[in-house]
Design a protein around this nucleic acid. Structure first.
Length: 613
RNA sequence: GCGCCCAUAGCUCAGCUGGAUAGAGCGCCGGACUUCGAAUCCGUAGGUCGCAGGUUCGAAUCCUGCUGGGCGUACCA
């Protein structure tokens, strides 16, 4: 039964007595196996040093396990370069000595491979255990309590009420929604909030244009979505302002009336804001974005002034010669910043200061995250610094989830240049293409509702495309490519999940017991099966890291990885079509575990799951 | 001018706190459907990791300088 030497590994008979820790602790992951081996190698190195009468420094900080470049080189690799000098021997020789000392154990087997000590883990038990745990977890594989007890508020989207959402918002929304979901499954108590920019001169501009040219038309009378209708008037204003030099002054005048509470202006404002918000709300609904709390700038813009004045009294800020109230940020290497104008009125950042404090009063968070583009990096540096200087303890954990611009292949996306990609249009185009794909594959009869399925596929395409890129980098959104549904895409992931579902249905029809939670790992001896188990086992740590780093792209990468490996596995290995029913069952269970991870992950990156597509 | 960010295959992107031969997808070329869903799978080709130094046993990864690009740098929001 036993074979000798790498790349094959010796296999122990399935027997829990070899794994007392495993039996007790259902939460062991690859990382735990890693630390087990760190301890063992540390022991070996210490003993070796004693034997040779060598003084040795701290071992643990230098002993770092990594994944070997190839599967047949083992599961964990420990480079021994850092110890070579102290032992006065070449790393390969040292590796050989350490490996000899470690030998074999129920935890697996150590082999010297060049300057590395490579560990070949005992596979059967880990596979059995991992799959059993995934299957026991229903749809929640990857969930953990690393952020348990933390209250986190996350603000994203920040729409203006003078125009519809565009591609930039879609990236913002995708990041915000996904980050919130990730934080939640890490155990945090999360509040998703939106700040609606519903006041200011830019809002008045669309109002002014409507008043001049609108002739009383409404979303109902025109059949145009409210946000689009209002946006059209914003564009109309810009055209008109080119010809009429008094336009800007008229807009300012309207703003003053608004601030004075002028009835007519306020009525118009309320009506048009409602149109926009209803329209934008439909977009959120369509893209599965939601908020727990709405904040409106019109209700907040006066906040912050009293806090600045108080800070001035306390000497946190100072009065400049020109009469403005400022903060000196020399200690963090920045210039001074105006917090109140010389006439005592607020500037933009004043309200942000007030808003943050007010929100903490509404819901005392441990952390507040702002999902805002990187063009505001400086703004948030200042904001956070001011709040710290004001002495709020929660100011230390404020976080700006900064992301890069979304560009189009043909050039930069600038709203003034009219090349913005409208969010609704984009989603509709994607859906249309998905529908064509469904038709051309002749699957209209298979799926219950082709239109709804196409919508789900389009969301997968969109969100995956937007989230696969590291947030802080600028990205190029290629509509054509996102629509291709080939390769490294959201629909690819959906397709893998749908295929597993299809197997699940078949198995159910055949009367197999899919509730069975124990898995016979001794039957899953293939390298791909081992690789899949490893990916599954690592997922909770990936989710944890994605939460810690505020980086959903770690989730997309893990999902693509599992889907790709599974896809090859599925292609090369019969699962249900297997004469050995026990093997068929074990492979199906592995497949179902993969499905669990996919579904759990889909939820985190806002990709709809489809049982059929 | 000053500050922050970015630079990896033709294109779009990965590359975890420095570790073995830098990976995917798209595109190109060539294979695989009487068999669990071909929206799939496999293979070939494609790289001076922007440039130059430095730290280290070891650098795409850390440090410095430079080049190129982006964004800021308002008593705008």
């Amino acid at each position: 039964m036993k074979k000798k030497g790498p790349p094959e590994i010796d296999r122990y008979p399935y027997n829990l007595i070899y794994f007392p820790d495993l039996h007790k602790n259902k939460g062991l992951t690859m990382a735990d196996w890693n630390s087990e081996w760190v301890a063992k190698i540390k022991e070996a190195l210490t003993a070796l040093a004693d034997e040779k009468n060598i003084e040795i420094g701290d071992i643990e900080s230098r002993l770092k396990g990594a994944r070997p470049p190839k599967a047949d080189m083992g599961d964990i690799a420990f480079p021994l370069f850092p110890f070579a000098k102290e032992f006065r021997s070449a790393p390969p020789q040292l590796a050989a000595e350490v490996a000899a000392r470690l030998g074999e154990s129920p935890l697996g087997k150590a082999r010297a491979m060049g300057p590395y000590v490579n560990i070949f883990l005992e596979r059967d038990q880990i596979i059995s255990d991992t799959l059993a745990r995934v299957l026991a977890d229903e749809e929640s594989w990857g969930h953990n309590d690393s952020l348990k007890g933390r209250k986190i508020m996350i603000e994203f989207s920040s729409p203006n009420t003078n125009k519809p959402l565009h591609l930039g918002h879609l990236r913002n929304d995708a990041l915000g929604e996904s980050s919130a979901r990730i934080l939640r499954v890490n155990g945090a108590d999360v509040q998703k909030v939106i700040l609606v920019n519903d006041r200011g001169v830019h809002i008045c501009k669309s109002m002014l244009a409507y008043k001049k040219f609108g002739q009383g038309e409404t979303p109902e009378s025109t059949g145009i979505k409210g946000d689009r209708l209002v946006g059209d008037y914003y564009v109309k204003y810009a055209q008109w302002a080119k010809e009429d030099p008094t336009a800007e002054a008229q807009a300012q005048e309207m703003l003053q009336k608004w601030e004075a509470g002028d009835r007519e202006v306020r009525d118009l404002w309320e009506m048009m804001n409602r149109w926009t918000l209803e329209g934008i709300g439909k977009t959120y609904e369509k893209t599965h974005i939601s908020f727990d709390r709405y904040y409106y700038e019109s209700q907040l813009y006066m906040l912050g002034r009293d806090i600045i004045l108080k800070g001035l009294e306390e000497g946190v800020f100072y009065k400049a010669e020109d009469g403005s109230t400022r903060i000196d940020m020399g200690e963090i290497g920045l210039d001074t910043k105006v917090l109140l104008r010389s006439d005592g009125t607020s500037v933009y950042i004043t309200q942000d200061i007030g808003t943050a404090i007010s929100r903490h009063g509404d819901w005392p968070f441990d952390q507040l995250i702002y999902v805002v583009g990187n063009e505001q990096d400086y703004h948030f540096q200042v904001l956070f610094h001011v709040l710290k200087k004001l002495g709020y303890d929660w100011a230390e954990s404020l976080y700006h989830l900064s992301y890069g611009m979304v560009n189009l292949p043909e050039g930069k996306m600038k709203s003034r240049e009219g090349t913005v990609v409208d969010a609704d249009d984009l989603v509709a185009d994607l859906s249309e293409l998905a529908l064509e794909e469904i038709r051309s594959k002749g699957r209209e009869d298979e799926v219950e509702d082709p239109r709804a399925t196409a919508d789900a596929v389009s969301l997968a395409a969109l969100h995956y495309y937007l989230l696969q890129v590291s947030p802080k980098k600028d990205m190029i959104f290629n509509p054509k490519e996102s629509l291709s549904f080939n390769g490294n895409t959201g629909p690819y992931l959906q397709y893998m999940a749908a295929r597993i579902c299809s197997m699940e249905r078949k198995a159910r029809e055949m009367g197999w017991d899919l509730e069975k939670k124990t898995v016979d790992g001794t039957l899953l001896t293939g390298d791909e099966e081992w690789e899949l188990a490893g990916i599954l086992a690592d997922f909770p740590r990936t989710v944890e890291q994605a939460g810690r780093d505020h980086n959903p792209s770690l989730i997309t990468a893990a999902l693509y990885n599992v889907a790709k490996v599974f896809s090859r596995y599925y292609h090369d290995n019969p699962i249900l079509n297997n004469e050995n029913l026990d093997l068929a069952m074990a492979r199906l269970q592995l497949s179902l575990a993969v499905l669990r991870m996919l579904r759990s992950g889909f939820d985190l990156i806002n990709i709809p799951f489809l049982a059929k597509m």
